[in-house]
Structures are given as C-alpha cells and as structure tokens.
Write a protein that binds this DNA or RNA. Structure first.
Lengths: 282, 282
DNA sequence: CTCTCGCATTCCGTATCTTGGAATGCGGTC
DNA sequence: GACCGCATTCCAAGATACGGAATGCGAGAG
C-alpha cells in the first residue's frame, strides 16, 4: 500500500509536465494528491464525477473520495448531489483572490528581468501605462558601458517608446485616435511617428508580430525591443523591453531579441496569473 | 508526535469557528492542516513568516514548513526570499477563478430558498435585473393555498416589485432618474410609486433598512419582502423575496420577515463567494 | 571581528495516519 | 427481478508524516 513512486499525475491520456524535485526537502504525499485533484477540477468548470477525477489523477476512487471529502469540509471543493459532480468551492475562490492583492509585479518580474538581461546582454526595463505615457517601474542594467535611459519613475510617451507602442497595439484604432487628439503625438526625433494613421498601421503590425521596436523614435542612438505582459482579463498590465545603443542592437539581432523578449513576457504573464489574449487572426 | 486532537485551528487569539464532524467519513489530517495554512495566508496579503503562520494555526514550525514546501511545489503558495514571507501563489488564483465560471446561482441558492420557505411559510423567489425589469429565475412554493405570482421566466418592473426595488436601492439616484426617463414608471396599482423623487426617497430607506417591501404596488392583494444577493465586487447579483397575500403578510410580520430574508440573502452571498458592500452611513 | 539571538531549515526514529482493496449501498436499466 | 455502474464505507498493513532536537544562516550588538 502507499506505493513509493512520487508519480507525476497523468491527466487522462495527454501527458503532463513531470513534477521536478521529487526529493524537495519536505513532501507530503496526501497534500500533493489533493492539489492534483483541485487542478483537475479546475480544468472542468462543469464538474467531474468521483471516478472521473480519480481516473484523471490516477488515484483509486477511495483515496480520491477521502481527499475530496476533506477538501469539501474546508469548502475548497463542493459537491452537487443531484448531478453527483465535484466542483471547485467558494473557499478556493476566496483564498485565490488574495493573490491579486498580494502580487507585486516588480518583485515577481525581477528574476525574469535578470535572466533576460543575462541572455540579451542589454539593459531591461519594466513599465506600465499612465495616461499618455509609460512609467518605468524597474530596470536591470547590463554590465556594458553606455547604458540606456530612464530609471524607476522615469517617463516616456506611449507613441514613441518600445513599451508604449507594445501596450498601444492592444488598444482599438479609435482609442489611439482619441489619445492623439487629446495629447498629440509630439515629435522627439526625426524618426518619431507623428501621423496617427501611420502609427495605427505600425501598431497592427506589432500586434501580429508580438513585439515592438523603437528605432531612435524617442532618442537618437537608442533602440529598444518590447513586449506586453497581460493580466487575468487578457488586458495589458505592463510592458517589458531591452534597450541599448543602435550600434549594438543591430538589425541582425532584432528578430532574436524580439522572440526572447516575447517569450519572457509570456513567462511573466504566467507568473502573475495573467492570460494571453486570443490569437487575433494574422 | 502526531497528537490525536483534530484541533480547531485558532487564529492568533481570536477564537475560530470549531470545525464540526471530527470524524467525518474521510478526514486527512495533513490536508486539513495545509488548508488552514492557506486560510491563514489568505488573511494577510502582505505575507507571513514561517513562525507567524505556524503560530496562527497552532502547528510546530517544522510541520508547517513541510506543508508549505509541498504547497509551494504546486505553486499554491509562494515564498519571497528577501522578505522571507509566505504568500498565496498563482495556482491558488488560477484554480479559484474557475469557481466563478462554475457557480450556478440557482442551484446554489435553492437549498437556502427551501429553508426560507419553511421558516417563513411563504413562497420564495429568486430574480435578477434585466434592463428595466426583473426576471424570475426560480421559485419555491409554499404549501398553503393561494400562492403568489410569477414562475421562472416571469417578469416584473423594477420600480414596483420587491426584488426590483431592493436591487435599485444600490444604484445612484441619477441612474434611477435615467431609468425613469428611458422606460417610465408605469402605474400598475393605486399604490405604485410613479414619482421618481418619491421612489428615490424610498430606495434610500431600503438601503438603510436592508430589505424592501412591495405593498400591493405591483398587484392588488400581493405583498412581498425582498433583499439583495451580492457578487464578489459588492455589486447586486440577484434578489431574494418572500411573497404572499396581504392578508397573511401582515404589518406585524413584516419586520421579522425582513430580517429573515436579509439574513438568508447574506448566507447566499457568502455561498456564491460574494462580498457585502461597506455599510453606508445610516 | 566575534558573539549572540532569532529565525529558517534539515535530520531522524517512532507510531500515527494514510492507504487502497474489498465489501456495502444505492439508483438506474435491461 | 437481477444486473449493472457508481458512490461510499470499512479495515488491517505499513509507508508516511510527525515534531523534537540539532544545524545553518544572517543581522545586529558589543
């Protein structure tokens, strides 16, 4: 009884990510199993029968039943007797919501930003939108000389910064027009986009591509590549970018950097419990 | 080691609800304890140190640590090393959100409606707002002869039904005026409130009182007493009422019925993970 | 620089708690 | 009426979680 294997729970037939660290300092079998049950239930808002959940997490029904009952006592799951279906309970919801209140974007993003800095070798920035501007929240500087722009608290205009354009690319063209009407599209350099239609065209391209490029549109000699971090409603929450001198961020490097930044933005989105928007038709 | 007591978890010093059923059919000690830990963490969005959580749920730190580590492996809690604080994790959030998708107001409310019917002896109704009307979703009929109004799918105007007025009492006076402008306040009986200012006055009183009364404003001979069920944003989600003939819902019974309906509306609010609005200054 | 203190973390032998097969209900269907 | 499929309960075996004690670690005082 109580087989020794810390078996990775296989859902149905589609193989799952193998849980790493089987010998993490402490490991409570019954608890892990209970959490697997919750995960399984969370994938089925319409509910699952005892035998269904049990099968999905590869547990004998009796064990699954005992764990579910315990979860039910604490209202982490509930049981609809008429359909005899197990579902996620109120308490799981109550507890889960405090995650949103406690999450600290900057703290959660920092390790990813550090990794991005190391993999790209460039300075990494995190910023959120505020009216017609972006506000930089955090920065991980690269070791090289000639580092780039704004530290925390710094600001730049939405229409001529990498992060700004990435965030804007998820607004409607009408909202962009309204923004231009209210705040204008002031020229910062020769390359700044000051025509709202040109801007909208570029934003459409950015959305398809998944990352934006600021090619000296904000300051001469400065380039940056940016992508968006989303919240749980698939709304833009913040933007992530790498920035550096034009001489170093060459055309040749841009596609790779774009992919890198997008990927890490996706990872941060995951980390903060966010949700990617539906893939808009290319 | 492993003391036998299925000890009710005491948070700090304020005593908690004693968990009933010490030997409920299944009961997994370590799982319950882990859930208590999560509950404790959920009360502190800023996070808690190991020893703090352990103290709150009355567990030795080693045990708490082992459970927290296991929860962390599944990302139900997270650990901020710089502050050495334990917090609710992403997965708890992800899983919790499916509660909202899976909750079925009617199914969840029904047992409470049945109890309300038994305790009041009157027909009980559940309805939501839809434009200028309420739509009845469910009904639990009383055993007595001469039962009241609409079955599921039935409609009534917001301004002259118990549930409608209860729901409206949480709108701004301006919104009520807009509603009156767009849809009018048609007279159904001699007692119908057709003056928007009179209506607003009554709504203010209803909000203070916590329940509304429809005294033959919708149909002669019919009275009803109603209260509001709230969602997680403290917004009105639905209304709950008891209704019956004027002869039976006497003035003398109204205060008790009002208290009863309000209380059960609060219980349903809890059940669906809702949140009562801040007590507006009386 | 060292000592101390308050923590978090790891270790380990014990017996408690979990485990899962088998037995029992329970409600439909052929 | 007898058979399913399914949820639920029971129980003895032993793997598993327990918590006290020992160790590590970092910060602040002396």
């Amino acid at each position: 009884m109580g087989e020794v294997l810390p078996a990775p729970p296989l859902v149905d037939d589609k193989p799952r990510i193998v849980r790493e660290s089987p010998r993490a300092s402490g490991h409570v079998q019954s608890l892990s199993r209970a959490l697997w049950l919750m995960n399984a239930l969370a994938e089925c808002p319409q509910g699952l029968s005892l035998s269904e959940v049990a099968h999905r997490v590869q547990l004998p029904t009796s064990t699954a039943h005992r764990l579910l009952t315990t979860l039910q006592n604490e209202r982490y799951v509930r049981f609809e007797s008429e359909r005899s279906a197990w579902l996620i309970g109120v308490q799981a919801f109550q507890v889960g919501t405090t995650f949103v209140r406690s999450r600290d974007l900057v703290a959660m993003a920092r390790p990813y930003m550090r990794r991005l800095m190391e993999e790209s070798g460039e300075t990494v920035n995190l910023a959120i939108a505020d009216n017609s501007e972006v506000v930089y929240l955090a920065q991980v500087e690269c070791h090289k000389m000639m580092r780039a722009i704004a530290g925390p608290g710094g600001r730049a205009r939405l229409h001529c910064s990498g992060i700004g354009k990435a965030l804007l690319s998820h607004s409607s063209t009408q909202d962009v027009r309204d923004l231009a009407d209210r705040f204008g599209l002031p020229r910062e350099t020769a390359k700044t986009l000051t025509e709202v239609d040109l801007l909208n065209d570029e934003l459409a391209a950015i959305r398809v591509q998944g990352y934006s490029i600021d090619d000296e549109e904000n300051a001469i000699g400065l380039r940056c590549v940016a992508a968006v971090i989303f919240d749980e409603h698939s709304e833009p929450l913040a933007g992530l970018s790498v920035s550096g001198p034009t001489a170093r961020l060459t055309d040749a490097r841009v596609p790779a950097l774009g992919a890198l930044v997008s990927n890490i933005a996706v990872e941060i989105t995951r980390e903060v419990g966010g949700c990617l928007p539906e893939r808009a038709a290319g």
